[in-house]
Design a protein around this nucleic acid. Structure first.
Length: 468
RNA sequence: GGUCCCAUCGUCUAGCGGCCUAGGACAUCGGCCUUUCACGCCGGUAACACGGGUUCAAAUCCCGUUGGGACUGCCA
């Protein structure tokens, strides 16, 4: 058997796929790819009460979106028989025993104990399997040394570990056991997961040994991704669903890049690096130990960088779904025209940090008359704006129709009124785009055409007259 | 409470005993560029949690304190 590393990512389909899972998947993937190893995706679907197919599908979708392909796919449930067999084996060879205590009984007996946990009440009773009896692992004396590529090698004194349940009284094995059996079965060599599992590790190592699994895996416990309160991010509290980021117009390559940076950094001062470069440079010895705050601002910035790096064509392609989504909302579906968008795209590309901002930036091309931003309208003084608009309109009526000529015309008109171009263009922009900021005005006017522009100017003059 | 983990600018980090008057990035604040907004460029503010050691020399090693976190389910 070749000794290529085999890593696995083992998410449970019990809720949305979040950034923590994404980072864990990424690090597993990176290490496997770097060392020509294999990357196993295993769906931990044995929590019947919570798992649903939709969540499993979401895991697949999210992994594909991120570009993290897997070599093997397994489900925990497919190994149910082996999990049960492992429980029987542990009982048969004396490494586990049946316990008839209910959870309430244990709690009542141990409430005042200095050392928490199960009190070994049934440890030497020699109970046979039976109704209401759970199988507990007989924790041996000694110490358990964990080999962790990130945290040195933590040592756990077994005396601090209770005889934990490995098979419920219902006969269903618990995660701790199932997970180990699957890792053995799938010949996993490196277990890379979040730090929250560190305390489980000695238990799993003991199970591994008791089951005769041979060499235990090497571990790597990743720093937690935390919220602003420095607590582990949770699906419930924090807005960290991968799907949400996708829907908001984050690019998967930007997401991967940012996720990689949460606990790791390449050798020099670079930050924007592609997956191939990450693969070459990645190593667990460079992964940080302290928790990392998920900073939306930095993610957003990196996303902007990736958007600007796109070719124009690629940008248009990626933005199209977001424009489709805006049809009937920000603009009229019937008036949308891809060629118009294509002409403006280069100007828009460097002005957005998320793809979902694109529609708002070009909506005024695809409506008959844009709605006028209220705050901007309120800030516009009719007595100043009306003369500008009327003069500009006269100049525009028969000048050449290209952005250079339009620029010159508006600038000239402004000069005549003693206004700098920055002042003169403001009401024109409001008339044409309905906003006070947006893509370059004269290029927009060129694309929009003379009739539309004049119509919009005339319309704003009307509104301003009415307001004054 | 118990076990384990962690600790450099607000944030992500570089640093693995001398190159550190602590570097980069995000954010923030100035300025330049400019038809708005961005982009780009230039510059500023801003950190080694604290206390002991070890050493000629410590952000870097050791111990302690403080602080934070995870786990502590017959969930995964």
């Amino acid at each position: 058997m070749a000794d290529v590393p085999r890593l696995r990512f083992a998410p449970s389909p019990t809720g949305m796929f979040h950034v923590g899972g994404g980072r864990t998947a990424l690090y597993n993937w990176l290490y496997a790819r770097k060392h020509n190893g294999q990357f196993v995706l295993r769906i931990e679907d044995t929590d019947e009460s919570r798992n649903e197919d939709q969540w499993t599908d979401l895991i697949f979708e999210s992994m594909k979106w991120l570009g993290l392909n897997w070599d093997e796919l397994h489900t925990q449930s497919e190994n149910a028989q082996k999990h049960a067999d492992a429980g029987r084996k542990l009982f048969a060879n004396g490494n586990a025993y049946y316990c008839g205590c209910t959870q309430d009984e244990v709690r009542a007996r141990t409430a005042d104990n200095a050392k928490p946990g199960y009190d070994n009440h049934c440890r030497n009773l020699g109970l046979e399997p039976g109704d209401g009896r759970a199988l507990r692992f007989r924790v041996p004396e000694g110490q358990t040394h964990v080999t962790d590529l990130i945290r040195g090698n933590p040592v756990f004194d077994n005396s601090n570990i209770e005889d934990f349940v490995i098979v419920r009284s219902t006969g269903v094995p618990v995660y701790l056991l199932a997970n180990v059996v699957d890792d053995m079965d799938q010949r996993i060599s490196h277990v890379v997961r979040a730090e929250e599992h560190l305390n489980n590790t000695p238990k799993q190592m003991m199970l591994w040994k008791a089951l005769g699994g041979g060499d235990v895996p090497v571990y790597a416990h990743l720093p937690l991704i935390v919220n602003e309160k420095r607590q582990k991010i949770s699906k419930r509290r924090d807005k960290v669903s991968m799907q949400m980021f996708r829907d908001e117009g984050f690019l998967p390559e930007a997401m991967c890049n940012y996720l990689a940076l949460l606990g790791w950094s390449p050798s020099d001062d670079r930050e924007i690096i592609d997956l191939d470069t990450m693969c070459q440079e990645f190593d667990f010895s460079d992964v940080n130990k302290a928790g990392a705050f998920f900073d939306l601002k930095k993610l957003t910035h990196i996303n902007g960088e990736y958007i600007r790096k796109l070719s124009n064509d690629e940008f248009v392609t990626r933005a199209m779904p977001f424009l489709e989504r805006a049809k009937g909302k920000q603009f009229d579906a019937a008036l949308f025209d891809e060629q118009t968008f294509r002409r403006m795209a280069p100007l828009v590309q460097e002005r957005v940090e998320r793809l979902d901002e694109v529609a708002e930036m070009v909506f005024f091309f695809f409506v008959d008359l844009p709605d006028i931003d209220e705050a901007a309208l309120l800030a516009t003084k009719p007595e100043q704006a009306i003369p500008v608009l009327e003069s500009v309109a006269r100049g525009l009526a028969n000048c050449d129709w290209n952005h250079a000529a339009l620029h010159e015309s508006v600038a000239h008109t402004g000069e005549g009124l003693g206004l700098a171009l920055r002042k003169a263009q403001a009401p024109v922009r409001l008339a044409v785009t309905g906003r006070k900021v947006g893509p370059p005005l004269f290029e927009s006017m060129e694309v929009l055409g003379r009739d539309a522009v004049l119509k919009r100017i005339e319309r704003l003059v009307g509104i301003l007259h009415h307001a004054s």
